[in-house]
Design a protein around this nucleic acid. Structure first.
Lengths: 226, 226
DNA sequence: GTCTATACAACGATAGAC
DNA sequence: GTCTATCGTTGTATAGAC
């Protein structure tokens, strides 16, 4: 962000207010998705959440799917910057784990994981949503992937646990837990703790003595699936 | 199953064909849910999939939500029997893991995991679906939970990895991966392999020498979250 | 760019003939 | 129990006034 300039100019350039409206629609889409889910989201419910006219959905984005796609990608891009910087600071698996928990709590509280989960559910039967969600998900996994890659660079687990796959598996688990939350909040919380305990197991394995590491690698490779 | 009796009697008691129709509707609901997702499922799409009249949805189940709920619970109950028996045969974590993979492949192929995922997505904004999905999910986790409980009875991991939570975490992961499959099939596959590798890590930890087990337990307890 | 008005399809749900 | 027919609502999408 550049430092502010003199006069209290209006928030945007005011090209006929269109940019503000686009912004409202993008936010409204996320709000509606969180409130009604992919099953209940519509041009009307989005417009209501955005506080604008329903016809503007089609004027600015052409269709509801297109708006949902744009909203999902936009929010992911905005979050991505924040993520990358904070994850770059982690120097051990333990720090990464602690940081991940905090980031996950933030995103869950803001409803962004919920948005992703709903988009993924819609993506199963809607190619347009699938395309957009795929892009959005890459934005979320890539900083985690980069961090893992860095921290596991010298680990014996590296050629047993494929790093990109590990990042994806973790992402999938967090999304699964988000959905689980809706039907069993207490159970989802304790499941989350257990997920973390298992992650600690990875960390422990990574801190083994050189001899123990070699032994572990042998065992894991012997049982490598597929 | 009792052994068959003499005459080739009709498949059901034929109380005006109603039971057959109910069955068709239940199957149709699952089919429609798999094909159109929770966002696109409707009384009409279900009736089409079932090959019956649309009005019968309301005659037999009162509402679409009610039918979806019944379908989800019914398919889970039917699967539950199969599961319980096969899981009871596992005598080691390794066997449990292999069996789980096979069961998961079967259920994914039949589209049952997809149904569960779509129901969970809908459940986030629909209390009726939430109630039903909660019941259905318990049917899936409980046999896994019982098996884990049995196999980990004497494990040092037992008071660190809460067994019911472990079963839930695994379920959530499988559901998350199912959704991931829709936007990145190759990525989801490799993520699944990694999930299994991590599971093997649990198994390895469980096979440690008594002394190593104690040391591990100390580490894990020290880092117990929350 | 934004609004009102409207076309038209699909939705849940019910009434009534069979 | 099952069907046809239909009501009222809500959905996407567009035309045209402002």
């Amino acid at each position: 962000m550049l430092s502010d300039r003199s006069t209290p100019s209006p928030p945007t350039y005011d090209l006929g207010v269109s940019i503000e409206t686009r912004r409202k629609l993008l936010d409204g889409a996320l709000l509606a998705l969180r409130e009604h889910g992919v099953a209940g989201v519509s041009a009307r419910s989005i417009a209501a959440a955005a506080g604008v006219n329903q016809a503007l959905v089609f004027y600015h984005f052409g269709s509801v799917d297109e708006l949902l796609s744009a909203a999902c990608i936009t929010v992911s891009e905005e979050r991505f910057t924040n993520y990358g910087q904070r994850l770059a600071e982690a120097t051990t698996l333990r720090e990464l784990l602690d940081l991940s928990r905090r980031l996950h709590e933030e995103e869950t509280a803001e409803g962004n994981i919920s948005v992703l989960a709903q988009m993924l559910a819609g993506a199963r039967t809607n190619p347009r949503l699938a395309e957009a969600t795929s892009q959005a998900l890459k934005l979320w996994t890539s900083p985690v992937e980069a961090t893992l890659e860095r921290l596991l660079a010298t680990s014996p687990l590296r050629d047993v646990l494929d790093v990109p796959s590990l990042a994806r598996a973790a992402t999938a688990t967090l999304i699964g837990l988000e959905l689980y939350q809706g039907v069993d909040p207490a159970g989802a919380d304790s499941a989350f703790s257990t997920f973390e305990q298992v992650a600690v197991l990875v960390e422990v394995a990574d801190n083994l003595s050189p001899m123990a590491k070699r032994a572990l690698r042998t065992i894991l490779n012997r049982r490598k699936p597929r």
